[in-house]
């Protein structure tokens, strides 16, 4: 009954046009547009950047954030070799079972396993994160209005202190771009937090850029295939349309208007 009342009240409030939470959240600036390798109509993922991004995810984000839609085998898309993928998968222990004795057991990961989630469930995640839930990142680029620009702005938009006149909030962190500004996640990226094998300096902005590229791939792994197919399909259709128009003109030519 309470749920009915609550949802009814919500629907009524919407129908009445009462502002709900939307503007209580506070205004945030639009994230500045960045130049992405996968941007525009024909962009493709910068493989090196995506691989560095995966490293950042693995060494930093994966401590709290799951990516349960992604399997280790998918990493072949961003240029990791079979051997590398096997090694990465084998690095984690995966719960499997039950075995013939009816017991669950741990085994090294395989390429076919999904990325291992850091927590068994949402409650476990909230319990160690001050009540906040680190969201699954598999679709984060598609699941946020600003997409890649927003994620980059968020990752680089932390301030140590809130702007003057804004009282600090216990256990929360000020971010210029997070809706409402106060975010439970602390500043995740700091200069030189990881060491890139290719010698790229691990500045905060570099890591944020690489991580965003990786997340963009994770959200839309079909993007390159889709665009390549799109070019062929549309060229085909334009030629077909042109030919059809020619036939149409010819057929209609014998009609006196």
């Amino acid at each position: 009954m309470m749920r009915i009342l609550r949802t009814t009240a919500l629907a009524a409030a919407l129908a009445l046009g009462l502002p709900i939470a939307a503007h209580a959240a506070g205004e945030v600036p639009k994230p500045p547009a960045q130049n992405w390798s996968f941007g525009g109509l024909f962009g493709t993922f910068d493989r090196a950047s995506a691989q560095r991004g995966f490293q950042v995810y693995k060494e930093v984000c994966a401590a709290c954030h799951a990516m349960k839609q992604i399997s280790y085998r998918n990493l072949a898309d961003i240029g990791l070799s079979d051997a590398e993928i096997r090694a990465i998968a084998a690095d984690v222990q995966v719960k499997d079972g039950p075995n013939d004795d009816g017991d669950m057991f741990e085994r090294p990961g395989r390429p076919s396993d999904r990325f291992r989630s850091p927590f068994a469930n949402e409650k476990a995640a909230r319990a160690v994160n001050n009540g906040a839930y680190p969201v699954d990142l598999s679709l984060i680029i598609k699941a946020r209005g600003g997409g890649a620009d927003y994620l980059y702005a968020l990752l680089t938009g932390y301030r140590d202190e809130p702007p003057e006149g804004v009282p600090a909030m216990d256990g929360m962190h000020w971010n210029d771009y997070f809706p409402g500004h106060w975010i439970a996640m602390g500043r995740p990226l700091n200069d030189d937090q990881v060491t890139f094998a290719d010698g790229t300096p691990a500045t905060t902005s570099q890591m944020a850029r690489d991580l965003t590229t990786f997340m963009a791939w994770a959200a839309e792994p079909e993007l390159e295939e889709r665009r390549a197919m799109g070019v062929r399909v549309i060229l085909f259709l334009i030629i077909l349309a042109g030919m059809t128009y020619g036939v149409k003109r010819k057929i209609w030519a014998d009609l006196k208007h």
Binding site: L41, R227, G230
Partner: peptide, 9 residues
């Protein structure tokens, strides 16, 4: 053509 542009791009 319009449909394909939406779907692919």
């Amino acid at each position: 053509i319009v449909f394909a542009f939406l779907v692919f791009f």
